[in-house]
Amino acid sequence: MPDTPGLAVRTLTPDAPADAPPVLLVHGFGSDGTADWVDTGLAAALAATGRTVIVPDLCGHGASPVPESAAEVTAPALAADLVAVMDQAGAATFDIVGYSLGARVAWEIPSAAPGRVERAVLGGLAPGEPFTAVDIEALHRAVSDGTECEDPFTAAIAGMVGAHGDRAAGLALCVEGLRSVPFQGGPWNAKALPVFVVGENDDLTRGIDGLAESVGGARLVTVPGAHHEVLAGTGFRDTVLDVLAR
């Protein structure tokens, strides 16, 4: 697992390469590339179609370094890291699949790499910024010394982050960085409109139809499952393979 621009990156190389750009897979918050893409089989399924598949761990996640400041883990900063990964891979153009936080970060990439993003599937994207509701000081206290959070949502995030042991402080910085530059939509600057995929029981994605309309009527696909169930489902996998087919 070589390090590329500071990040841990896995690359799956097909046995019979297709005449198509590589695919960048971007995982969700508190997860990593192995859990979201390798263990679910989607990375292998894409490689089987002849695609080179690039699977990084975001800063603060998986085997990648822990951030030293929240500024390193805003969505634009995370997107810049991923563009550097694709630069080092020699990818003039590429497709993207992102889920949850991965979709949020993927939204920034066409602006950070003009003219290079071809097709994109954005799964589980919240049309707002959930982390703006976090009491960030309370979260840091909870992670550092176990102080209980009065706010239920902050307590839930603290529980999720705290489960990662010595990685918890870095994930708390990720929350701080992401909430400091909240998602506000805006133009989609890739060659084609993204395809949004949401679970039919995913409350986090409520209102995504408005976001899809705002970028010119992007396709919205609803599949079975709640937020944590969609990635492993056949509906999501089939949509990704269909959208990225060449």
Rank of each mutant, 00 (worst) to 15 (best):
F236R: 07
V9H: 08
M1H: 14
G225S: 12
V197W: 00
P187W: 02
G159A: 07
L204V: 09
A63V: 15
A103V: 10
T93G: 05
D151I: 10
D151H: 03
N201S: 15
P114A: 04
W107L: 03
A18F: 06
A16N: 12
V175K: 02
F94V: 04
V23G: 00
T49A: 09
P5D: 11
T132A: 08
I136Y: 11
P182H: 09
D145S: 13
H228N: 15
V221Y: 11
A106S: 09
D151C: 10
L204R: 09
R51N: 05
R141N: 14
Q184F: 13
P21G: 10
G177W: 08
H228P: 12
G123C: 13
A163N: 14
V143S: 11
P2T: 13
V181T: 15
C174I: 10
V66S: 13
T52N: 11
D87A: 06
E108D: 10
W37Q: 01
V223K: 04
D57I: 12
D3Q: 14
A106Y: 00
A84C: 12
A168G: 01
L24K: 01
S144Y: 07
E108L: 03
L24S: 02
C149R: 12
L58Q: 07
R246T: 13
S214R: 06
T4C: 15
G185H: 11
S69F: 05
P17R: 02
W188M: 04
P22R: 02
L12M: 06
F236A: 00
A75Y: 13
E148R: 04
T52H: 06
L58N: 03
D145F: 08
G159I: 03
S144G: 12
L82G: 12
A142L: 04
R179C: 02
P21Q: 09
V240P: 02
D242N: 07
S69K: 11
G102H: 09
P127Q: 03
R246V: 11
L125C: 01
S31A: 06
R167E: 11
A43I: 03
G165L: 08
D166R: 14
D3N: 10
